[in-house]
């Protein structure tokens, strides 16, 4: 099995304060810590597990600036055989920060179509933008089937049986013909650590750089653009409901009802 895994480097923002920059369309990133996107990390692990079981190669691919190389090296240290970075710098200062899922998907598709592959894995959602689009788009552009939110893959070439996660504890079982793309849900496996020797070797490994215009793409038109970013309205501190136990319970029930929380 030759496996391609698409990974994104994202800022860790869950416990950090996030501020909007001067353009009003992006965030200030100087004090943020970047790491592999959470579900992409599970996708990477799944790729390595499939390779360990069935043989083949794992290629990690990412779009972005040279900062992404650290993330790709980490992928190599964990078990990817090769790494490719699509450099988006040439898209220009206006387009690059606004790059949309479709453009990313086009870039990935063009790069991946030059490779031999049986399986493409991506995370099911990028933690920063939360779109959940790129994987499905890449599959459509390549003309291969896909399944989103996958929590189990069993390969029985030329088919695979996958489980994907629906709402409220329900799973869908489906059969899919390879080559296919799966967007991986977190929790599908247990991502590994990298050993010191693997880290050392990964540091010396070459990362293949593809320039976006070398991929034969010229079109910089974007299908969706961010107009503005702004903080959600705030106003915290609990409103303490007053009264007897019965009264407070009634008040709370009314709030739950009015706000449609249940």
């Amino acid at each position: 099995m030759n496996i391609v895994v698409c990974i994104k480097r994202v800022p860790e923002t869950s416990e950090s304060e996030i501020k909007v920059d001067e353009s009003g369309k992006d965030i200030i990133k100087t004090r943020l810590t970047f790491d592999i996107n959470e579900s992409d990390n599970y996708a990477l692990e799944e790729a390595i597990l499939i390779k360990e079981k069935l043989g083949g190669t794992v290629t990690a691919i990412s779009c972005g600036s040279p900062d992404n190389d650290a993330t790709l090296r980490m992928a190599i240290a964990k078990g990817a055989d090769t790494a490719i970075r699509i450099d988006t710098a040439d898209l220009g200062e206006e387009v690059q920060p606004q790059i949309d899922s479709f453009k990313i998907a086009q870039l990935l598709k063009t790069a991946i179509s030059k490779l031999e592959f049986d399986i493409i894995l991506t995370g099911c959602m990028a933690k920063d933008d939360g779109y959940s689009q790129v994987g499905q788009m890449v599959a459509e552009l390549l003309g291969i089937p896909h399944a989103a939110l996958v929590t189990e893959i069993k390969i029985d070439a030329p088919k695979a049986r996958a489980k994907r996660e629906l709402e409220a504890g329900l799973l869908e079982v489906l059969d899919i013909t390879l080559p296919a793309l799966f967007t991986i849900q977190t929790g599908i496996n247990e991502p590994r650590y990298a050993s010191l020797i693997a880290i050392r070797r990964a540091a010396a490994k070459e990362i293949k750089i593809l320039k976006w215009n070398e991929l034969g793409m010229q079109d910089t038109e974007l299908r969706a653009t961010i107009e503005s970013l702004f903080p959600p309205p705030i106003g915290k501190r609990a409103e303490i409901l007053q009264g007897t136990t019965d009264e407070t319970a009634t008040k709370l029930t009314n709030i739950v009802k009015e706000k449609g929380l249940i």
Partner: peptide
Amino acid sequence: RILGEYGSCPEVLKPVISTLRAS
């Protein structure tokens, strides 16, 4: 230091580090 640089440290420490850098 080597493990941390490659994100190969316990996951639980990562948000501590990113939070510290940010705030």
